[in-house]
Design a protein around this nucleic acid. Structure first.
Lengths: 348, 348
DNA sequence: GTAGGGTATGTTATCGATCACATTCTTTCT
DNA sequence: AGAAAGAATGTGATCGATAACATACCCTAC
């Protein structure tokens, strides 16, 4: 069997790594046949397949993914858009996404959204039009990026809350923060606290955040006084500042925090104010970030399965890209209250 | 001015986004001229440039980076190889790399190295032969990946330690862990502690890790007893387990930890053993991870500029890829001992 | 024996850019 | 004024793959 016509103009020099043409020439087949072997889609005779595979191994041939994508092959790459990965939630979600994508043979791009940066240039970050995208939209920057994405890009997103207006977007997933916050609040009430104060993380939209709503749900249902939520940021410092003055008031006996970092700041403020935890004051966090179990006192918090959410977000994307072959979207865990040392009965 | 010859066979249909040909046609120039405008390298008359730029804006044209790379354009993408990003050091380094790369107009790929996974397939993760790579090689998996990379890929790495054998690789950078550990150890000795125990993080190579060496340097120089390093992992739990039995010995009054997470576990073990920090026992961490300042007691630790290291690692790569135009490699901060509440005078 | 229907494989066009070289149009100098 | 030098721009080949279509081959059925 001889391949004569339609050869590439020049022999690939030794300096360049093997291309599909080199494999084809050495194996004595056409590049299309090599392509068929690589992708395993079309039928190739067993003998030919074996020969091609052997040549591939000998030459150390690796398909060039850029060329594959350019030529319109199946999508095998994703770009993740996320804001500050110093935050546990975003970082853990990213880990889940990367793991799932890598396992499925996708290459993963990442682009961090600076807080407050413009969204006009979002499309510029993509490697090509139609690039697949996952957005981690737990905050304002993420939500804006999601909105700014051109309509033709296949995108899935992990969001803080479902959109208020219109139907659910089937390509967005979220954790049930609202129910979890309500549960944590009910837990504190059940310990005898008259009410629960809440230090809020910044909102991802103009509407009331899910965690804030859940906290309010529980207080309302129990007919308890509903304090103003204390506006916090994402950092321990902002939690510290948010409650410092509040803690002089000994009637404040229970504080729920929008995340564990805020709780860290709250606990420090409590120490400085001479309030004992959990004797005088119960503190509950949100996220169950890694240090929480080892803090002094260890932190009662709501465990959120961000990694699972990230894996599911990729699963969703995979289904969107390739409904035929993609596996089922993996399930993720429900939020779970982890009771530790930082919460206890209301002081008598 | 009319462009007649050498047109692409068919008009780009409305469904596909604008290509360089569309811009060229509308602007009445050749695609090469559009390419020149995009890349700003060759000279184009002011009038032509303005017209092309306007058409680009009108059509919303975005160059396809895959096609650019395939066609042999300048490298504008990097893949970062890193192990577990749940660890603060790797995560912070990655942040620095991503930020610097994004700022320089590079797209960033990421691929996580599973602990203990084979290294044979590392090249498979790259989008193409010759893809630029940065490796975060603070642990075994990273170092192995760095070794397994084909010779033709332009790579820089953030490493735990410089290679023992042979000359320094000019494309690797590191923090001076050894000096920092020695400094932290001297600090503890200066507080009156007879000696300092050390809980080690896993080694990235078969040789003695830098932090361990620095600790030993200081003890030797001071003529103090040199205890066996306690083997730890990366997690608080492993720190807890490593020192639990040791803490029964009241003569142990100072412990240096290979990272802050280990310190977290050590502090818990101390609490359970009824050892007061810093009264009975001084604990010093390594890294200055975000929670450290807010722990109870707040943790004395060595601040490491991982983000700066990451930025520098990209700077180095940029110089390697494009020595002419790349900016100078940004400096990063020296390790710095941050004294907080967890360390104090030796008990009398 | 020949039409019919797969199966295996080859050929050409295409994706969207860059590169190297060719060509045209201006200047500038003698 | 003519030639040489340089600026601006166009042409064809190329990167490494896939898609769509074409073709050769083989076996079965009438």
């Amino acid at each position: 069997m001889e391949v004569t016509g339609h050869m590439p103009p020049q022999d690939a020099p030794r300096t360049r790594s093997a291309s599909i043409w080199d494999v084809a020439r050495v194996a004595g087949v056409s590049q299309q046949t090599v392509s068929r072997v690589i992708n395993g889609k079309a039928r190739v005779s067993e003998a030919t397949r074996a020969r091609v595979l052997q040549v591939i191994a000998e030459l150390g041939y690796r398909p060039n993914r850029l060329a594959q994508a350019l030529a319109g092959g199946p999508v095998r790459s994703v770009t993740v858009l996320t804001s500050d990965t110093a935050l546990y939630g975003a970082a853990a979600t990213l880990r889940g996404m990367e793991e799932a994508a890598r396992t499925a043979g996708f290459s993963v791009g990442i682009s961090v959204l600076e807080r407050g940066s413009g969204q006009a240039d979002i499309a510029l970050r993509l490697n090509r039009p139609g690039e697949a995208v996952m957005v981690i939209a737990f905050d304002d920057a993420g939500v804006r990026a999601l909105r700014a994405l051109p309509a033709d890009v296949p995108v899935t997103a992990a969001v803080e809350r479902r959109p208020d207006d219109g139907p659910d977007d089937p390509w967005q997933i979220w954790l049930d923060d609202r129910a979890a916050a309500a549960h944590a609040t009910r837990y504190l009430l059940s310990l005898g606290h008259q009410t629960v104060h809440y230090v809020a993380i910044p909102s991802s939209t103009s509407a009331l955040p899910q965690r804030t709503q859940g906290w309010q749900d529980a207080l309302r249902a129990a007919g308890r006084p509903l304090p103003e939520p204390l506006p916090g940021g994402w950092s321990p410092r902002s939690g510290y500042l948010a409650v410092r003055s509040l803690l002089a008031d000994r009637s404040v006996t229970a504080i729920l925090c929008g995340n564990d970092d805020l709780a860290l700041g709250v606990m420090r403020a409590a120490r400085e104010a001479g309030r004992d935890i959990p004797g005088d004051l119960s503190v509950v966090g949100f996220d169950d970030s890694p240090p929480s179990a080892y803090l002094n006192p260890s932190l009662t918090t709501v465990r959120l399965d961000f990694e699972g959410l990230g894996r599911a977000c990729f699963g969703l994307l995979h289904r969107r890209l390739d409904p035929q072959n993609a596996a089922a979207v993996p399930a993720w865990s429900e939020p779970e209250l982890i009771v530790r040392e930082s919460s206890g009965p209301a002081p008598s």
